[in-house]
Design a protein around this nucleic acid. Sequence first.
DNA 1: TTATAAACAGACCGGTTGTCCTGTTTTGTC
DNA 2: GACAAAACAGGACAACCGGTCTGTTTATAA
Lengths: 219, 219
Amino acid sequence: MAPRKKRTNDPEGMRRRVLDVAEDSFQARGYHASSLSDLMAAAGVTGGALHHHFPTKKALALAVIEERVATAVQETWIDPVLAASSAREGVRAVFEAVAAELEQQGYVRGCPLNNLAHELSLADDEFRLALARIFAGWRRAIADKIRADRLDGGEGRIDPDRFAALAVAAYSGAMSMAKTSQDAGVLRECLRALESFEPSQSGLTAKRRRRVLPRRMIG
Amino acid sequence: MAPRKKRTNDPEGMRRRVLDVAEDSFQARGYHASSLSDLMAAAGVTGGALHHHFPTKKALALAVIEERVATAVQETWIDPVLAASSAREGVRAVFEAVAAELEQQGYVRGCPLNNLAHELSLADDEFRLALARIFAGWRRAIADKIRADRLDGGEGRIDPDRFAALAVAAYSGAMSMAKTSQDAGVLRECLRALESFEPSQSGLTAKRRRRVLPRRMIG
DNA sequence: TTATAAACAGACCGGTTGTCCTGTTTTGTC
DNA sequence: GACAAAACAGGACAACCGGTCTGTTTATAA
C-alpha cells in the first residue's frame, strides 16, 4: 500500500535538469516572465532542491548564461567559424545553417545571448558583464580567424575587428527581426548583402578549395 | 484649513504624462520589470486615472509601441535618411549621430524598438505584429530611398532590400552590443566596416554635393 | 555502526502584482 | 440649472512571486 519509493540522490543530474528547463524558459519567455514555480513544475523539482543548487533566481540565470548561453555561442558560431576555410566562409555557413534550421523548425525564438542581453543588461551589472564577456569572445574569435587567414595568404583588405563586429551585429540584428516577424528570410537577406560587398575580389559565392584539416588558433 | 483643491480635468495631458513615464521605464527597465505602481508614482497619477486611459498594462504597452516607439524610429532614422543626399550617406549620418549622442550621454539604454521586440515578441502576437510593422516600415523607407537614389543617377549596384535589411540589422545588433558593454564604440566599428565595403566605387567617405532640399518619397 | 554533511522535500510568509470596483468630481449639452 | 457622460480618486482583492525555514532522507567517511 505504501508506495515505498526509494529516493536516489543525483545532484549533477538534478542541476542539469533545472538548467535545461531554465535555459529553455528564459529563451522562450524571458527571465522575468519565467517564474520559479513554473520552472520547478517543468523540471519536476521541489523548492528545496532548487534552492539547494541555486540559492536565488539570479544565481540560476547567471549559471544559464555562463554555462549554457556561452556554450551555445561557442558551438553554433565560434567552432564552425574556426573550422571553416576562411572567416568569411565560416560566417556565411553559420548564417545559412541557422536560417535553414529555423525554416525547418517553423518558428524563431531568437538568439539566446541577445534575448537575455536585452532584458538583463541594464538590470544588473553582474548580468551585464557576464553577457558582455560572451559578446567579446564571439567577436574576438572571428577577428582572430581573419588574422589567421591573412597569414595563410587570404584576403588582406578587411579590418579584422571591424568585420567581426559587423558580422556579430548583423547576425544579432537579423535574428531580432526574424524573431519579431517570425520569418528567417531576413537572415538570408543580410547574408546576401554582406556577400555582395566583397571587397575588390570578384568571386562572390564562388567555390574555393577547402582546407582539409580545420586549424584551431585559440587555446 | 481645508485645502480645497480644485481639480482640473486634462485627459490628453494625463495620457501624455503616463505615456512619457511608461516609455521611459519600458526603455530603462523593460516591460515586465516596470510595475504599474511605479509608473503611477512616477507620473503622479492615481490607479483610477490610469485604468481609465489604459484598461490593462498590455494596452499601455501597445500605445507606447504604436505612438512612441514608432515615432522614435521615424524621427531618429527614417526622417534623417530621407533628408540625406543618399541612403548610404543617411545611414552613415544616423550611425554617427547616435554614437555621438550616446558618448556624450555617458550610458547606453539601447534601441527602444529592439528592447521591446526581444521581450514581447514571443509573449503576445499583438505585440509582435505591432513591432514587426515598425521594423518593416524602417526597412522599407531605406530601401525606397535607395531606389530613389538610383533614379537620380546614384550608385546602382546594391540591392535596395538587402542593403536596407543589413543596415537595420547592423544597427540593431550594434546597439545590442553597445548596451551590453555600455560602450558606443561598436557602433562606429560597424559603420566603418559597412563603409569599407563600398561596392566598386572608390570614394570612401569622400565629400559629395549635398542636395539642398530633402525630398520625401513616402506619404 | 555512527557521525556528519550533502541532497532533497514541502510548507510557509511577507510583499508585490495587475485588475477591479465603488464613489466623487468635472465637463459638456440641452 | 438638469442631466449624462467622461475624468478621476482610492481602496480592496485574489493571485502570485521569490525566498526562507524546518525537517527528512541519502551518501560518505571514520
